[in-house]
Structure formats: structure tokens, C-alpha cells
Computed example of a mutant assay.
Amino acid sequence: MTNPTIRPRTALTALALGLAASLAAAQAYPTKPVTLVVPFPPGGSSDALARAITTPLSQSLGQPVIVESKPGAGATVGADYVAKAKPDGYTLLMGAVHHTIATSVYKKLPYDFEKSFAPITTVAMVPNVLVVNAKSPATDVKSLVALAKASPGKLSYGSNGNGTVQHLIGTQFSSIAGVELLHVPYKGSAPLTTDLLGGQVDMSFDTLTPLVQHIKGGKLRALAVTTAKRSSTLPEVPTLAEAGIKDFNQGTWFGILAPAGTPKDIVAKLNAEMVRIIQSPEFKKRMEEIGAEPVGDTSAQMAAQIRDDTTRYARLVKEAKVAID
């Protein structure tokens, strides 16, 4: 007769062996270099944050963590690359709020941002700021709105691409202020900033990080930040709400994700190492220099942020009638 206890014992043994193997893999991880994919060109906030965290992360993991830029299509090219990568912890994504917007903006995406990734942690929140060239006659938000109303559709604003948060901030600003602006999409902050400095585009609502040196250097003029409170890096610059554009509270978060299916022990290890770095005095000092606010949350908290933003931006995308085939 068959012993009825053999099958349960066999199952328990297999489970125990599987857990032991998973734990051993996590303890051994990493045994080779890790790649952090940045879905924008070098020179922007995502690139700066990626490089700020990969240097200390390389030291703590004992393996190089390499930043690789894969820009295009509003940050979706890089996201798609990571979504299709082997879920072993060796290919990660520097994700951003842009990806929650793309879910509603693009009619067809080759991945599902909520289902195709395992969130690790949010690295930082970066305020967006309305800036113009220092030679612009607009000295504050009121005078900028007056200029836009005097020449409908003539003043241009640049963004990091169609469907990015800068794009939506521009449409929301236009709607609330009652002005018509020309949207000029770029592949990232670096080319946008170059044209902003050269006068090829009139304004932008980009993140503070790539702009702060030019603002403090007098080449760009900051008119307002788009968040609910002022930036500690530019405390003299008012919020859009203070400047008369009500109901505005938009910032940009950046965080690191792995492909869905990455072992939970590896995700937990990466979270612990990254949060420790993010909460260090050295990292906080670096964030202050580039106008970013360090976060360092749990994987579950980041997942909740993604769910909430996906819902919130779906409504804004529908209101702005933004769609890309």
C-alpha cells in the first residue's frame, strides 16, 4: 500500500529545497555587472539620479552597476527593453512618472507598466519649474500669460517628449491660464535645455535638475515651480498657485524597477541597499545640489504610487485629449 505521508513530505521537501535555492541565489547575487537602463538621453534628471546612486551601489553590491541610456518614444523604448529582459536582477530600469502617463497616452504599448515590472524603490522626487530664457521679456507668470494671449499659438514650450509629464503640465497650464501654446517635443532634457538656452524654444516645464545651474548662472529665469510648495533649492521662486495659476501640484518622481518575475529575495536585497544609500548624508547632500528630494520607500509603497498616478494621469490625459498611435 502507498504511504499517504510520502507525497506531502515530498512536496514539503521540494518547497524547502526551492526556498533554500532562492535564498542562496539572493545571497550570491550579484556575481556579475548590473545594468541600469535610463530611458532618456544623458544630461537629464533620470541620468543624474542614476549616476548618483550607481556609484555607491556598485561598492555595496561588490559588482559594477553600469548606466546605459536607451531613449525614445517618451521613455517607452527603454522600458520595453527592460520589460523583456531576463528577470534575474541584472537589468533594471530607472523609471519615472512618465511611464504612468504613457499607459494612457499610447494606444498600444508592448508592455503593461503595472504588470511587467517589480518596483524596487523611489529614488527621488524632483520639482518641475517653469523657465524662460533670461532674455525673455517675461519676468513673471503674469507677464508670460500676457505675452501668450497677445500672440496665440506663437509662444512655444519644450518637453521631454509626447506624453511626458512636462507635456501634460504644459496642456494643464494652457487650460487654466486660458492661453494657446505651441508644444515642441524633444527626446530628453539635454537637447531641450540646449534649445532653451539658444532661444529656439520659449519656455519649458522641465524638472529642476538639468536647469538649476543655468538658473543660478543667470542664463535662464525661473518663473514658478509646479509643486504645491516651494523648492528648498530655489526658495525665492513662487509656486504656480502663488503666481495665480490655481489647482497645480505636479512633480516628477524617479524610481528603480526590475522585470516582473525577478526573485523577491533579490528585489528585497536591492531595496535594502538602495534605501540605505538614499538615506545617507552623502546622497542627501548630492540631491540638494541638483534640486531633488530623496525618497527611499518600500517596494509596496512604490507600487501604490504607480497605481495612483496611473489612475490620476488617465483622467488628465483624457481631459487634455492627448493620444499617440
Results as ranks from 00 to 15, higher is better:
Gly244Ala: 07
Ile266Pro: 09
Ala304Ser: 14
Ile278Gln: 04
Pro119Ala: 06
Val237Lys: 02
Pro110Tyr: 04
Ala224Gln: 10
Ala260Tyr: 05
Asp206Leu: 06
Val123Ala: 05
Tyr90Leu: 13
Gly95Gln: 08
Ala292Thr: 07
Arg9Met: 15
Thr227Gly: 14
Gly161Asn: 07
Leu257Tyr: 15
Val165Cys: 01
Met287Ala: 14
Ile245Asp: 12
Leu130Lys: 00
Val212Asn: 03
Val322His: 09
Gly44Thr: 01
Pro33Leu: 04
Thr209Asp: 06
Gln279Lys: 15
Tyr313Val: 00
Asp206His: 02
Pro294Met: 07
Ala50Val: 02
Ile66Leu: 11
Thr139Ser: 12
Pro127Tyr: 08
Gly296Glu: 03
Ser156Pro: 05
Thr91Gly: 10
Leu61Gln: 09
Val131Gln: 03
Val132Trp: 07
Pro259Glu: 14
Lys84His: 14
Met125Phe: 10
Gly18Asn: 05
Thr76Cys: 05
Asp202Trp: 09
Leu130Ala: 08
Gly178Ile: 11
Leu257Arg: 10
Leu192Ala: 12
Ala102Phe: 03
Ala148Ser: 14
Pro259Ser: 11
Arg7Gln: 13
Asp47Leu: 04
Gly188Tyr: 08
His167Ala: 07
Val184Met: 10
Ala323Pro: 00
Tyr106Val: 06
Gly95Glu: 13
Leu130Glu: 09
Lys86Asn: 12
Val322Asp: 08
Ile290Arg: 00
Asp325Gly: 09
Ala75Ser: 15
Asn160Phe: 06
Asp325His: 08
Gln305Asn: 11
Ala320Lys: 10
Trp253Met: 06
Gln166Trp: 05
Phe283His: 03
Tyr90Ser: 15
Thr171Leu: 08
Glu293Lys: 09
Gly18Lys: 00
Ser175Phe: 13
Ala48Tyr: 11
Pro210Ala: 01
Asp80Phe: 03
Val38Gln: 14
Met274Arg: 00
Ile176His: 13
Leu36Phe: 03
Gly44Gln: 08
Arg230Thr: 15
Gln200Glu: 14
Met203Glu: 13
Lys216Asp: 12
Ile101Glu: 11
Ile53Cys: 01
Thr13Ile: 11
